[in-house]
Amino acid sequence: MGFLVTTLIFVVIGFIACLCTRICCNRGPSTNLFHVTLIITATVCCWMMWAIVYLAQMKPLIVPILSEGE
């Protein structure tokens, strides 16, 4: 699973969540927009966190050096 595939998964999940709120609690345009904003913000936050950790391990400059005990 590469970077793009997982990113796509995040996008899809975000999209599905948006649809779900739209279908499950449709309460007028302003509230829907509010829900969508929340979901997008949350998805972006989660994606950023994942992407940062993923990128940092993609081409590691240092590698795990096991402790003596193991």
């Binding site: 699973m1 590698v63 795990p64 096991l66 402790s67």
Partner: peptide, 11 residues
Amino acid sequence: ATTVGLIKVRA
């Protein structure tokens, strides 16, 4: 493994 370290072998 305890001196130089492991190496990235997979994705």
